[in-house]
């Protein structure tokens, strides 16, 4: 039913709606209200087992941090190879669809690793990161990146070759690299803040 109403532009309309909702959220008073209401959740996070382990055993926290970095490396590799192929830099003699589909699998595994280890790390320092603006920038970049990847990039690269303007694909590739670099850089900056 919704697909019939929206015609052939379902995803485009969905993306614009998400962006509009994000802007409305960011610019209205709702943001401050939600931010205040999230404090109990962050306080609770520190009382969980993850929070307890993260605060008590520095070695466990550091090991999870290392796995977070390994996930970041895999995510970087899969993004750079896939987007490099779209930009015509890497593996140009291999079909674009093969590279992007295979790299997407690696990307999913890497993102799942990053989220799982990230949640653990966040529980250990929940109240610290709650008050760090850069943590929220990272969450914004991460959510934006995931939405961009699954709602914009994937539908475009999954289309048949020639169906999408190659320059649009190149633009998407550049945007993707920039978004994931921002996610990584803001994550790194959390370590220097607070």
């Amino acid at each position: 039913m919704p697909a019939t109403l929206l015609g052939p532009y379902t995803r485009t309309i969905l993306v614009v709606a998400v962006l509009a909702a994000t802007l409305a959220f960011a610019l209205s008073g709702v943001r401050g209200e939600v931010y205040g209401n999230l404090l109990p959740m962050f306080e609770w996070m520190e009382t969980t087992w993850f929070g307890f382990i993260g605060k008590t055993w520095g070695a466990a926290f550091a090991t999870i941090q290392a796995f977070h970095l390994l996930g970041l490396a895999l995510l970087g590799g899969s993004v750079l190879v896939a987007e490099g192929r779209l930009l015509g830099v890497f593996l140009t003699d291999t079909p674009q669809g093969t590279i992007t589909a295979r790299c997407n699998r690696m990307f999913n595994i890497a993102l799942a690793t990053l989220i799982a280890t990230g949640v653990f790390m966040a529980c250990g320092v929940a109240l610290k990161i709650y008050y760090l603006p850069v943590y929220w920038y990272k969450m914004l970049a991460l959510c934006g990146g995931a939405l961009f990847h699954y709602l914009v990039r994937q539908p475009l690269v999954e289309r048949a070759p020639g169906e999408v303007n190659p320059w649009l694909l190149k633009l998407v590739a550049v945007a993707s690299i920039m978004i994931w670099f921002t996610v990584a850089a803001t994550g790194r900056w959390i370590g220097f803040s607070g």
């Binding site: 970095l69 390994l70 970041l72 490396a73 895999l74 995510l75 970087g76 590799g77 899969s78 993004v79 750079l80 190879v81 593996l91 291999t94 093969t98 590279i99 295979r102 790299c103 699998r105 690696m106 994931w180 670099f181 990584a184 850089a185 790194r188 900056w189």
Partner: peptide
């Protein structure tokens, strides 16, 4: 930060090469 973020390039590529050898990444390339 540069040292850490360059992991995405160096180890990212290395992981894909090694995982390909193990048949876990890009097996049809």
């Amino acid at each position: 930060s540069t040292h850490v973020l360059t992991l995405m390039l160096s180890l990212g590529m290395l992981f894909l090469i090694d995982l390909r050898m193990l048949g876990l990444a890009l097996p049809d390339v």
